[in-house]
Structure formats: structure tokens, C-alpha cells
Design a protein around this nucleic acid. Structure first.
Lengths: 222, 222
DNA sequence: TCAAAAGTGTTAGATGTACACCCATGC
DNA sequence: GCATGGGTGTACATCTAACACTTTTGA
């Protein structure tokens, strides 16, 4: 946005790639991919992505990628955050392109095989699935790092992951999914109790436990 | 990087904007701007920025912006970090354009009026200079926020700001410049002494103090 | 009543904050 | 020696981690 010569129009393509993430205590963290329709890498699973439109906002491009590539509606997006811009000659064999990556936290979905209307495939990010094309593995790593460093500091992000009502168990499971270590249940409860952003609810403990005392449930103040 | 139709080429322009930052105990934090040569906003001070070239890496574009707009050579760049991508219809009156912003930490410069070869104007970020065009004020805010949240956690960044050899006073002044509060000198010294990344040096206390005990000097281990 | 799972209490260690006092320098 | 300013020691609060023990549920 500096030179007057806007004729210098051999710029890289601008792609938007989205890392769709959900969390549920039963399933842990999940990242969605979809089968690519077009070359390059047609037929392979990859992150949903689009080329940015002329007058489109970056966040709108991210929502469009979710909708058109995975069938996920914008209403299901609880949180959208920019992760960063990725470049490098090796990331796209076709054209030079930069990718602006977004993290999208979605409401957890019922486990279902991908259909034509909802072609998303949900996978564990640490699973040993086949590696993704482009630099999508690096993008997922950056997105999860974004989450790891901001959980409980970024309240909208945390709320998007846990939902409006959640249990102590859910919070502990999220911590385990992100860091790999499971926190002391007692300390977890105390951290939630003393968090001014949370209030305890009397909501019935949703799912049937496998025995044991049902966990406390929490909502967000304000 | 998704649709096969690479004919969809009415994408926004890709600009690279750089926030050049230096720190010195005597001057505090400084951000450089340069007078724009071209429309829009020709003649006004703004962050150095360029339109990305076709095969150019983002970081290379940032270095080119520094060189061509402020006369700062890449060798003076101690640290370069991506801050984020900025969009929005109001940010450029000419074309739709997105900007990928970089933070560039530079070796402190001797205070000198801008020349044709080095047209950079160094200003205090919190000063009441006239507001900058585009969304450059927001970009500077984001870049400084990037520094504030990473200081002492991101060692290369911290080292770039303080230099290879620095005094306890320098570290305290950096803290003051970033947070506005000046830390307890005793605690500052202890924090440096117990930081495994630092070693104490016997370097002579460079500048003549205004009286008072000269501060300890530190270097980076490894 | 037993096992499972969560909640409460308590404590040791680490970390952070504050402040009184001591030391090195310029004038 | 006196003002200036950094360094050392110490006390106190806070946060963190760990663990023993209690409570609530399902089977």
C-alpha cells in the first residue's frame, strides 16, 4: 500500500486456510479437514481454504471456506482468530501463494461419517493420520500453539472451546488435551471457583457418569 | 490455494508494512516513519511499506520496505517478527488492500534529522504526533502489544531490544518504557542475576553516569 | 458396601513485591 | 562528605503443586 504503481500486479495469490477445531470431553480436541475437489492435491484431505475475493474481509473468507469446503455454517462458529500469514516457495506447487490462517472454534458435532452436505472429516491432531498437503501440518501446529498459549487468558476463546455451560471434568479434560498432563482435580476445582469470570450453576450433571460423584457445573458471569 | 480457477484474479493488493522499533535508555522506545512519496497520502509520514513482489517472501518484503523507504539496511535489523494481517475497507482509500505487518527491531541510531539517504523520522510511540494514515496507528499498537507480551519470554526479541551487552539500568528502563511503571531496582538486579540466559560481564560502564553507583553489565550466555 | 470420581483442606516450595539498608561513584 | 543511584538482604504475600482425606454417586 505504498507505491503508486498499482500496475505491479504479479502478486502472489491470497489464500485463506482455516483450522476448524472442536473440543468435547469424550472426543478431545478435533481438527476438521475436507477432501479437495480441485488440483493440486485433488482427492486428498486438507484444511478448508479459499482464494480471497476482491472486496472480502479476511474473516469473511474464513467463514466462506468453512461453509463451502466443510458445510459448516457461520452460525456454528463460536470463535474466529487469525493465526498468521504463511509463505514459502514450497507451500504451493502451482502458483506462488500466501496463506492467511485462521483458527475457528466450533460447537462440537455428533460423530458422523462425512456426507456430501457435510464433508468434514474430524481427526485428532496428534493422530498418525497421513500428513496433509501444502504446509497444512505447520498451520495446524501454529493454530494449536495459539490455543495453548491463550487458554484461560483469552476468555472468548476458552468459552468457545468449553461452551456456555461446562463441568469441572470438562475443564480438566481440556487441559489434558492441550498439555498432555492431567491436572490435579482439586486444584482444577479451586481454580474454577476463584475465577471471577465464572459462576457455579445447579445445572443437572448432563451425561450419566460412569459412577463417582458428579462434577460441578459452571457458567460464564456477565 | 484451493480453487482450480486461478483466473479469479481480482484479489486485494498485498502490502507489507513495517514497524521499525529501537530502544535506548536515553531515548526510550522509538518508532520510525518516513514521508510518503506517492499517493495516497503523499507527503505524510507513515510506516514504511511496499507492495509484495510476485516471488518475494514476506520477510524479504519487510526488509525491502525498510531499505527503500527509510534507508535502513537489512544488516541493522536485529529481529523481525510477523505481527498480523490487517484488512478492512477503511484502511486504504485507493484499492482494496490487505497489509501484513512486521515488527523490526533495529540497533539504536544516533539522533539525527532525516536526510535524503536516511529519511526515517524517529518518534515516541506514545507522543502526541499527528495521527498516521491508513490503519498505521492500529498496526503500531499491535506491534507494541506483541513486544509487551513477549518480552523476556522471547529471548531473541529481548536481546534485539537490549543489545548484546546491557546494564541493569537498561533493563529497568525497557520495562518502564513498555509498562509505564518502573520496577524495583533490587528486584531487577535479582531477576537478571538468576536468569540462566545471562552472564555478568566486567565491561566498563559505558556512559558517564550522573553520579551514583555504576550499574552491572550483562551479556547473553551461549 | 464397594469402587469411582470429585471436592475440601493443608502444606511445602517457588515466585513475586516491597522496603530497609549498604555500597560505589561524581561533585 | 554529600547527593545520586545501583546492589544486597530480608520479610511478606501470593501462586503452584502435591497429597491426604472426605463426599457423592452408580453398581
Amino acid at each position: 500500500m505504498t507505491d503508486a504503481t498499482s500496475a505491479a500486479r504479479d502478486q502472489p495469490l491470497i489464500a485463506i486456510d482455516v483450522v476448524p477445531v472442536t473440543f468435547a470431553t469424550s472426543d478431545g480436541l478435533r481438527v476438521a479437514t475436507a477432501r479437495r475437489q480441485f488440483a493440486p492435491f485433488a482427492g486428498q484431505e486438507a484444511l478448508p481454504g479459499v482464494l480471497l475475493d476482491g472486496a472480502e474481509l479476511l474473516a469473511d473468507g474464513a467463514r466462506r471456506a468453512l461453509r463451502t469446503k466443510t458445510g459448516i455454517d457461520a452460525a456454528a462458529v463460536r470463535h474466529l482468530a487469525q493465526v498468521g500469514a504463511f509463505d514459502g516457495p514450497s507451500r504451493d506447487p502451482r502458483d506462488t501463494a500466501i496463506s492467511i490462517a485462521f483458527l475457528a472454534v466450533l460447537a462440537p458435532v455428533v460423530a458422523a461419517p462425512p456426507t456430501a452436505a457435510a464433508p468434514a472429516v474430524w481427526r485428532r491432531p496428534d493422530g498418525d493420520d497421513p500428513r496433509l498437503p501444502f504446509d497444512h501440518d505447520a498451520i495446524i501446529r501454529a493454530a494449536l500453539d495459539h490455543v495453548r498459549t491463550r487458554i484461560w487468558r483469552d476468555l472468548p476463546l476458552t468459552r468457545a472451546l468449553l461452551g456456555d455451560v461446562f463441568t469441572t471434568t470438562d475443564a480438566a479434560a481440556l487441559h489434558t488435551a492441550l498439555t498432555g498432563v492431567q491436572p490435579d482435580p482439586g486444584n482444577t476445582n479451586r481454580a474454577l471457583r476463584t475465577n471471577p469470570a465464572l459462576v457455579r450453576t445447579e445445572a443437572p450433571t448432563t451425561a450419566a457418569g460412569r459412577g463417582g460423584r458428579p462434577p460441578a457445573t459452571w457458567t460464564w458471569a456477565g
